[in-house]
Simulated assay, not measured.
Amino acid sequence: MSYASRKDDHVRLAVAQQRESMAGHRPCPFDEVAFVHHALRGTAERAVSLATEVGGATWPVPLYINAMTGGSPRTGEVNRGLAIAARETGLAIASGSMSAYLADGSVAETYRILRRENPDGYVIANVNANTTPQMAARAVELLRADALQVHVNAIQEIVMPEGDRDFSAWPCNIARLTETLDIPVIVKEVGFGISADTVTQLTDLGVRIVDVSGTGGTNFALIENARRERADFDLLADWGLSTPACLVDAAEVALRNGVTLLASGGVRTPLDVVRGLALGARAVGVSGHFLSILEAEGVDALITAINTWITRIRQLMVLLGAETVRALADTDVMLTGRLAETCRLRGIDPADYARRSRNPLRQMAPTSRIL
C-alpha cells in the first residue's frame, strides 16, 4: 500500500475515533483529575499570563497543534487548514510524520504548506526514530523548522501490516540526532505514553523535551488493526499509560534532570489542558479534536474553537489563582480511580497532590514516593 493511501486511512479512522470519543463511548483519563476548589483564591484576569517556555522559545499560549498528517493531496489540504489556524491563533504546530517526504520528494508541498501558510509561527518537523541525521536535516530544512519531533511508535508498527519489526537501534539514533542538530529535539509517543524510566533513558541520550502522549486520544493500535485484512490484532487496544499517569510518573525525574514535559493524548476540552498543565506539562497538544472540527466545519470554525479554548484556559487560571502556567503546578488536585491506583503501584502518594499548595517551598509537582 502507498504512503498516500496509508495517510488517508489514518485521517479517516482518526476522525471516526474522535467522533466516538466525543459521543461519550470511551472514558477519558483526564476525568480522574479534579481541582480542589478554594473559593477565595481567584485572581484578576488581567494578571494572568499564558506565556510558556519550551526549548528556549516563548510560546504565547501553552497549547499546540500536535503531529497529524501529510504525504497525500488530501492530507496536504488538512495541513493547509491546520497551518492557517495556527497562524491566526498563535499556536505552535507540528507536522505529521515526514517519512513519506523522505521516501518521495514529490509530496514535499503537502508538508511545506505548514510553513508557507504560517511563515512566522513555531513549526515542528516530525520524523521517526529510524531517521538519520542527514534525513532529519532535510525535514527540518523543508519546513524551516524551529524544533524536531521524533516519534516512537513501536505499538503502532507492530500492529501495522507493513510496519517495522526491529526497534533496537532507536536509542542510538535518537542520541545521534541530539548530538548533530542545532535545534531542540522533542521525543514523543503516538498515544501509548512515556514512563519515568523512559524519560531517564532519554535524558541519558541528550533529550531535554519529552511529549508523553499517553492513552485516551487517537489509538493507533485500533487504527492499524482496522487496516489489517482480518482485524485480528486487537489485544493491544488497551496497552499503555494515560497522559495524566505519565505526567505524574515522570514529574520527579523531569525536575531532577531539567527535562521539559509536554502533554498530549486524550485532550478534549480547555479543562483538560489546565489539568495537564497542573500535572507538570509546560504545554499541551491537541490533535484529534482539532482535526475533527476542521474536517466537519472548516478552518474558520477551527480558529473560533481555538480562540475559545484560549479564553477558557485563561478563565480557569483566574479561578485557580494561577497567574502563570508554572503556578498551576502548585494547585491542589485530586487524583482518583485508575489514575490513583497507578500512582500507588508506581510508588507515588496521590494524597500529596491534594494538599500541595500548603507547602510554600514547592516548585513543581510533588515527588514524594511511598516507602
Score class of each variant (00 low, 15 high):
R358S: 14
V159F: 06
G42K: 13
G105E: 15
L339G: 02
G298R: 12
R46D: 15
R165W: 11
T308R: 15
G81A: 08
T43P: 04
F220G: 00
R227F: 02
G214I: 06
I293E: 06
T43A: 14
G191Q: 02
L247G: 05
F192H: 10
D197G: 13
F35Q: 05
I155K: 00
N173T: 15
R369W: 05
Y3H: 10
E341N: 13
T203Y: 12
D120V: 01
P350H: 08
A92I: 05
C28E: 08
D349N: 15
E297N: 12
E179K: 13
N153H: 09
E77H: 09
T198F: 11
V127I: 14
L294A: 07
I370G: 07
M22W: 10
V274W: 01
T131W: 08
R12G: 07
Y353K: 06
A94S: 13
R256T: 12
R41K: 10
R314C: 08
E224Q: 01
A365T: 14
R282Y: 09
D204R: 12
V286G: 01
R26V: 15
G258W: 09
D182H: 12
A175G: 07
G216H: 04
V123E: 02
R230I: 04
H38K: 15
I186E: 01
H151S: 11
T132P: 03
N126G: 02
H289N: 13
G105S: 14
G70Q: 10
A251N: 04
D234N: 10
S242D: 06
R338Y: 04
P29L: 08
D120C: 00
T336Q: 08
E88L: 13
T304K: 14
I124N: 03
R227P: 00
I209T: 09
L319F: 12
A100L: 01
I84K: 15
G193I: 06
T218G: 00
S168M: 10
Q363E: 12
